[in-house]
Design a protein around this nucleic acid. Structure first.
Lengths: 217, 217
DNA sequence: AAACATTTGTCCGTATGTATA
DNA sequence: ATATACATACGGACAAATGTT
């Protein structure tokens, strides 16, 4: 298992946190392939730390579903099937819809304006065919809505699911289309009209449409 | 006679798992009070193990939101405010509704019958004023539905949220009422009619009603 | 301001369990 | 079946960071 050495080390972090972030990044971007065996001693050497923080990081990644641990046998990157997107998007959709609903009365014009700006850059990224940037901007757009719902339980659940979606997008080159741009704008208009139900409905549609696109392929 | 292979399921009871289960139980039932400081050395001695499995257990509990960790400073039981129930029930409600929707076409009459039996015992517990049993049966009822939705991402999110609900119910003696019994029966009838939308709607109502009850107090 | 006390974070050695020859 | 190799689980000691006197 060749472990890359070209990673940047953010300062002021514990070894555990560094290991967690780095390994998660490697799993999401495919550096560590699905089903790849994870040897804590090797990872420890690659990251220049001992096995303890690696073990702890792997356990957290296990809880989040990125690695599978078989006690006494081994640890490996969770295999990801393309079809998993069909299982992730429905719960993510209903949670995002709920977030939009709860965020509606709390939305200020400033936040809406900044969302509109992100959506503009999102449209540009799509026009340029820059899928990676587009996905990141899409994620950012929805994250801001979730934050404004001011509900930590929703934030936690969503962030976990979104990390998996991100990984799937990366692996299977799922593309977000121009249609999302219009839907985002519709969500913003619903916010401006304080239309809770509308914001929720469009949010859910926005996520489930990706699912439809996927099933057409 | 062939020897069954599903008897060795009792996964090796590791010290970490024991510590995790015990500490979580203590937090949920109030033995460990909100904001109480958790010293890993003390816990290690109390459970007769070293600090390592305690530390690992605390980190898992942290991910689930039961303890807060301040790096280099200390670890404490997450404070719970009664009002948190208002934040937990909405996401739990939409996820349970989604689970009901997805489970509808997969429901067999056998499962529905067993749910009806649980609901009967649920009604008995309420009639006897046995709130603890009632809550547990209510949880069991909904868990079976979630399992039958066959979506691991939903199962994970729900189980995390439900653990917190359980803790709140314990602390604040929130009571489930007879009305839930009828709603459960309505959900079962929707299953039998293969009415996805109906099952989802009633499921969500069932959870949000608890919220209304709470706000009336 | 500086040294102390306490607690957390990390390292590494060892024991235990698992799979394979 | 036994032995061997290997990976994990745990324990105990040291180092670093924080709050306090």
């Amino acid at each position: 298992m060749p472990i890359p050495t070209d990673f940047s080390i953010p300062v002021r972090m514990t070894a555990k946190k560094r290991a967690f972030t780095q390994i998660q990044t490697w799993i999401i971007d495919g550096t560590l392939q699905p089903n790849e065996k994870l040897n804590d001693a090797d990872l420890a050497q690659a990251l220049g730390v001992s096995r303890t923080p690696i073990r702890e990081a792997l356990q957290l990644l296990n809880v989040q579903g990125f690695v599978e641990m078989f006690p006494g046998v081994g640890t490996q990157v969770t295999p990801v099937k393309k079809e998993d997107v069909k299982k992730i998007l429905p719960p993510l959709g209903v949670l995002q819809a709920l977030a939009s609903e709860l965020a509606t009365p709390l939305m200020t014009q400033e936040v809406i304006d900044s969302l509109r700006d992100i959506n503009r850059r999102f449209a540009e990224a799509i026009a340029k065919g820059d899928s990676i940037s587009a996905i990141k901007l899409d994620e950012q757009f929805h994250n801001i809505i979730v934050e404004n719902a001011q509900n930590q339980y929703i934030t936690n659940s969503v962030s976990m699911l979104q990390a998996h979606v991100f990984r799937l997008f990366f692996h299977d080159s799922i593309i977000v289309t121009e249609k999302s741009v219009d839907e985002h704008e519709e969500i913003l208009k619903a916010f401006e009209k304080k239309d809770k139900a509308g914001a929720a409905a469009i949010s859910r549609t926005n996520w489930l449409r990706i699912l439809e696109m996927f099933e057409e392929k």
